[in-house]
Design a protein around this nucleic acid. Structure first.
Lengths: 213, 213, 213, 213
DNA sequence: GATGAATGAGTGTTCATTCAT
DNA sequence: TATGAATGAACACTCATTCAT
């Protein structure tokens, strides 16, 4: 029974504590992956302590899943901020492509998180109940754009929405996902504003080129 | 009394030992990343022992870099097995796209390795001297295809070879890189033969659609 | 608008809370010992909360001591429920033996508690002021039985009351204290009704056999 | 990869290391039980380090079981050092009683260990394959003594060997098992030489008194 | 060159205890 | 009186790395 006689002090705001932990965890997980991340580091960065992490998230893996779900949810939320359903087909498609590209540019942690989760063969995500429903509305939007575009003759026929979305995601995500190895290999700083701008235009060209009838 | 032979230890074949370690390391690193991989596990799987790993590769990080370089080199080697320079422009471009796609399909460890390395912001690859020169011949080939295609009127003008290669890589790599999260989200088994075939055709369509004048 | 009643917290019955904590603690301590018991678990089981434990008992060790004293007290109380002083010597002795045996059978937590306390070399019990006086009346009763039995010729002479009580306790307590290891070693379920009955008779035989002149 | 660059030094004698750990563990477990014992403490006391404990015993519980089995085995070994089969029945029975008593006196860790294991309801011992066979020869010896004693008329009939052994064990074990609480309650130092001697004689009297025809 | 034993700094997780409300 | 959030010191267990043989 030689235990501590500690003294406490802090906030007493569960929601704030919880959010601080999630923010710190996002940073740490994105920088080092699940295995490389340190619970100690997350606790220190959050301004809270390890006990709270286990109180709120059960364990490191529970924290990982929550961070992952949050990242996905935030992306979809931002994406839906603008009402694509009212845009013209080509305009809407370009918006989706550009939003995707810019979101990846602004949120490198999102990229890192997804890659790490793919390393685990999505084993954590598979247990998530929230994820699949997040994507349903997006597919509805894409389907709608495709149909309207086909009707008005600006888009080709027989395009699968999932295929198309995957290509949109690929063109944005891959660039940022592999930006460090690509920059090294080609000896160019692909993160520069100029390169990014050119790449985004190229990507939109690719998508719209593909959709031409 | 017959003089006892000194019990022969093990192989005494440095090259074999070295190769076994690299094979085991590729497997382990691809499955768990750098931080998640275990030196003990690599030693056990290699049939050798930990001391040899440190003898040949200095430390875990040295082993990581070697594995990474090997993976890159193997890809380029396979790619050059066929002489693209003699193909017709469209045929050559389709070959590059399909090779890339199939290589990613056959070599999931390559995907995992690159993603992990990007998590580290390519910090190990940056120290590599071998990497950049691996890609020079590839860019030469692409430039040649583009020029010939433009001359004969089958390709549009003003296409940057690096941009194009990045897009080719994106279309193949991203699909396999994110196959687990995408499969989960869309509720489809994207690793099935059927899905892969469809995806490869779609990808070729995208590339060639983009290159149309 | 009816003025809202301040949401009544919980019971506000100090004695009930205290008793609930003691019950929960007895269960937990008996199952896991002092070191193995968890304050969280006791709090949860008691339906109260940790703060109350510290309010009433100071700390885990204070709670331990209180639980221990209560257990001893309850045993002596039950033992005195019947007036042994009015029984015939042999009858009284058999009653003490059987009571002891049955009490141990009914109260495995008592056994566990005492063993755990002996592991600590009785360091908590030594600080107790209540314990010694609990046993004085018992020794008076035994001394009385012995004297009457010796006078009437049914008991031998020169029997030390403490020795005798220790033997009575040993025969009952040891059986239940070691019932799990003994059952394992001898491959018999010593907790079965049949085994217990046989053992109790055997024990009485031993005591009365010893007391024969 | 901010890992240590340690320097090693020690013995390289697996058996010695193993034995040192077991000795240290016996001490620590006997003093504090399974839950109260500290792996750190065991490692420090053993002169080795924690890693070796996990190397040789898997985990804390594996170490506990090994210590427990060793303790049982040592008792049985010592007991068999003298050939009871050649003794006269009364002499042999007294020897068993006294050996048991003295062994408990000399080996308080054995007592502590068994009590702790009974707290766990013998859950570790139940998994042991070695234990039951240890006791078979002892029961053979007791059975033989009883038969010879009955034949020569010095012992009563219908005595179950397991019952008898349990009583022998009870008389010795309980005294030392509960010596601290008993000493406290009765205000006597039951560990003194004088008390022990008296108790052992009393115990032999009880056993032989019981066996009288 | 090859091996298994050894090391010490971590690493995720748990605990008794205290404070703000 | 009662409660749930917070704390820091431990705790069991693991890891990359090194040394004796």
């Amino acid at each position: 029974m030689t235990k501590s006689k500690p003294a406490a002090k802090k906030s007493r705001q569960p929601d704030v504590t919880r959010r601080n932990i999630l923010d710190a965890a996002l940073y740490e997980f994105a920088a080092k992956g699940l295995a490389g991340a340190r619970v100690d580091e997350i606790a220190a960065r959050s301004g809270s302590n390890k006990r709270m992490i286990y109180e709120y998230f059960g364990n490191k893996e529970g924290l990982w899943l929550t961070v992952l779900e949050n990242a996905y949810a935030r992306m979809r939320e931002e994406e839906h901020a603008i009402d694509v359903a009212r845009m013209k087909p080509e305009e809407g498609m370009r918006y989706l492509m550009e939003f995707n590209f810019k979101f990846c540019s602004r949120n490198p942690e999102f990229i890192a998180l997804l890659n790490a989760e793919n390393l685990h063969k999505a084993s954590y995500l598979k247990d998530s109940k929230k994820i699949r429903e997040l994507y349903t509305p997006l597919l509805v939007v894409i389907t709608d754009l495709l149909q309207r575009g086909q009707k008005s003759g600006v888009f080709r026929k027989n395009v699968d929405p999932v295929d198309l979305y995957t290509t949109i995601a690929a063109l944005g995500f891959f660039y940022f996902s592999n930006v460090h190895t690509l920059s090294t290999i080609f000896g160019r700083n692909l993160l520069s504003q100029k390169e990014q701008k050119a790449r985004m235009e190229h990507s939109s060209d690719v998508i719209l080129g593909y959709l031409r009838p």
